[in-house]
Amino acid sequence: MRQNSLQQRLGLNTLRFFVLLVLLFLGIILWEVFSKGSGVINSGFLFDYPRKGMTLGGIFPTIMGTIFVTLVTTIFAIPMGIATAIYLSEYANDNGINRLIRASIRNLAGVPSIIYGLFGVAVFVQGMGLGSSVLSSGLTLGLLTLPYIITTTEEALKNVPHSYREGALALGATKWEAIWTNVLPSAVSGIVTGSILGLSRAAGETAPILFTGVAFYLRYLPGSVYDSFMAMPYHLYILSTQHHAIEEVRPLAYGTALVLLSLVFVLNIIAFIIRYRYRNFNKARI
C-alpha cells in the first residue's frame, strides 16, 4: 500500500509537471518576443514606412495591409459563412446528402493552409485574372476561414433550445421571424466569438497569401483591392529569412512579431470575454 501511494504521488506530479511544461512553452515564446520586441516599439515603428532597404523605419504599410486584407476576408467570409450555417442548421433536412456536406465542411476546416494558397493561385490569381492583389489574398483567406465560421455558427445555432423555435411558430411566427427574433439573438455571442477567432487566424496566416498578393516591399499603400500589399506575417518571414542583412534587422523582426502577436491575442481575448459572459448568462437562466 505504501508503494502504491508513492506511485500515485509520482504519477500525479508528473502530470502536473507536464502542464507546467506546456505553460512554460507559451511563457518562453511570449517572453522572448516581448522582452526583445518591446524596445523597438514606438510611434515611429507603428506609423512609418520601412527605410534603407527595410533596415530602418517602421512597419506601417504591413499593419495597414494586414487590416485591408482581413477586411476583404471579413466581408466575404462572415456573411457567406453565417448564411450557409443558417441554411444547413435551420432549413436543410437531415438527409444523407446534407450530412455528407456537413462532414466535408468539417474536414475542410482541417485542410493545410498552403492548399488554400494553391487554390488561390490557380483560381483567383490566374483563373479569374484577379492578379496578385488584396482581393485574391482576401478571398483565399476567406475560403480558409469559411469552414471554420460555418462550423462554429452551426454549433451556436444547435445550442439554441428547440423549444424557442416551436414556441415562436406556435404563436404564428413565420420561420424567418422565429429565426430572426428568437434563434439568432440566443446564438449571436457564439457566432461573434467564432467569427473573431476565424478572422484572428486569417490575420496571422502567411502561406495562403504568399503567392496571391503579398509583396516584399511597396512604397505606397494599396489604392484599390486590385493592388498588391505588404502584410505583417509575411514581413516577419522576410526579415527573418530572406533579408540581405538578417542580423542587422533582427530587432525589427522582433518588433513585427510583437505587433502581430498582440493583434492576434487581443482578438482572442475579446472572443474569450464574449464567450465567458455568455456562459455566465446561460448559467443564470437554468
Binding site: 507559451l26 522572448e32 496571422g204 496566416e205 527573418s240
Partner: peptide, 24 residues
C-alpha cells in the same frame, strides 16, 4: 483558467513560431 491559456498557444501565428525556431 488553464484552458483559455492553452487556446492562446494555438492562436500564435505559425510565422511567429518559425521565427522563435530561428532565433531561439
Amino acid at each position: 483558467i488553464l484552458k483559455p491559456v492553452i487556446e492562446l498557444l494555438a492562436a500564435i501565428p505559425s510565422v511567429v513560431v518559425g521565427f522563435i525556431g530561428i532565433v531561439m
